[in-house]
Design a protein around this nucleic acid. Structure first.
Length: 263
DNA sequence: ATGACATATGAGATATGA
């Protein structure tokens, strides 16, 4: 069967990053691309530019903050917007759909997990609640026993290995023991971290470099963008890669794309 | 210690990010 490429990328404003998004799609040609931090509402999303490249567009947008999308060469089915479990939650951080490629169907979610800083505020409590809701929902989806890819900006550094200078992140919501424990709880439902599956304990695998203090030039990076795979999806994993060269482009996002290939 | 730097909003300064 034809291989399928699935990607995730926090673009930090789709309007500011439109040229980069187009250039990267042309170069990487993912079948499904999950985007985060659109920072625009659905009607303002530049859908036509992506449709011109042959992509179907699904968005769950929000003004100024958050916002997630899925671009796909196949039409999405069974689309759902928002993460179950907290009806009053109005932040646009979750979008899910099923993409069929001939006889094969893969369920994909685009996830923008809350940052949670500063950790002594409601923002951190919201992050942890959101992770509990994600675990509960992932638990339901795993019962389907189908290929499933939960892709996005998790805002969690899973291990010290995933930071160039882990000591800089002590106490940060991205590296707090509570955040890492909840990330493990989700993974331990039986989900495979695609990049770690592909690269083992290799160091220097980062997806984010801060704009400030020359973080990119010093390779002061962290790995916080992840693709978690159900067992049925993990069986299909061929390769994973981090397109870090995109961070060299002019006026880049602070995150770079992560891409997997399924057989 | 704080800010650095980037983005959106909206027209100056503030909120948010990680």
């Amino acid at each position: 069967m034809r291989r399928m490429k699935i990607a995730t990328w926090n673009v930090n404003s789709i309007k500011a990053r439109l040229d980069h998004a187009i250039a990267w799609l042309k170069e990487a040609s993912p079948d499904v691309a999950c985007l985060q931090e659109l920072k625009c509402e659905d009607q303002a999303f530049p859908a036509q530019a992506f449709e011109d490249l042959g992509y179907n567009v699904l968005t769950h947008g929000q003004k100024t903050y958050n916002g997630v999308a899925i671009l796909s060469k196949m039409k999405g089915e069974d689309v759902s917007r928002g993460l179950p479990g907290e009806p009053e939650d109005s932040q646009a951080r979750y979008l899910e759909a099923v993409f069929a490629d001939g006889p094969r169907a893969i369920r994909v979610a685009s996830i923008y997990l809350p940052n949670g800083n500063p950790p002594d505020t409601d923002k951190f409590a919201y992050k942890l609640r959101w992770m509990d809701r994600l675990r509960a929902h992932a638990c339901e989806l795993l019962k389907l026993e189908e290929p499933l890819v939960l892709a996005g900006d998790y805002n969690v550094i899973p291990q010290s290995l995933d930071a160039r200078f882990p000591e800089n992140w002590t106490g940060d919501a991205l590296f707090r023991p509570e955040s890492r424990a909840k990330f493990r709880e989700i993974a331990n439902l039986g989900l495979t971290d695609a990049v770690r599956q592909a690269y083992g304990d290799e160091p220097n695998l980062y997806t984010f470099w801060d704009y400030q203090a020359g973080a990119w030039q010093r390779n002061n990076g962290i790995r916080i963008d992840h693709l978690l795979l159900s067992p049925q999806a993990a069986d299909l994993l061929v390769t994973a890669r981090i397109d870090k060269h995109v961070r060299e482009w002019e006026r880049p996002s602070d995150h770079v794309p992560v891409l997997i290939e399924l057989k």
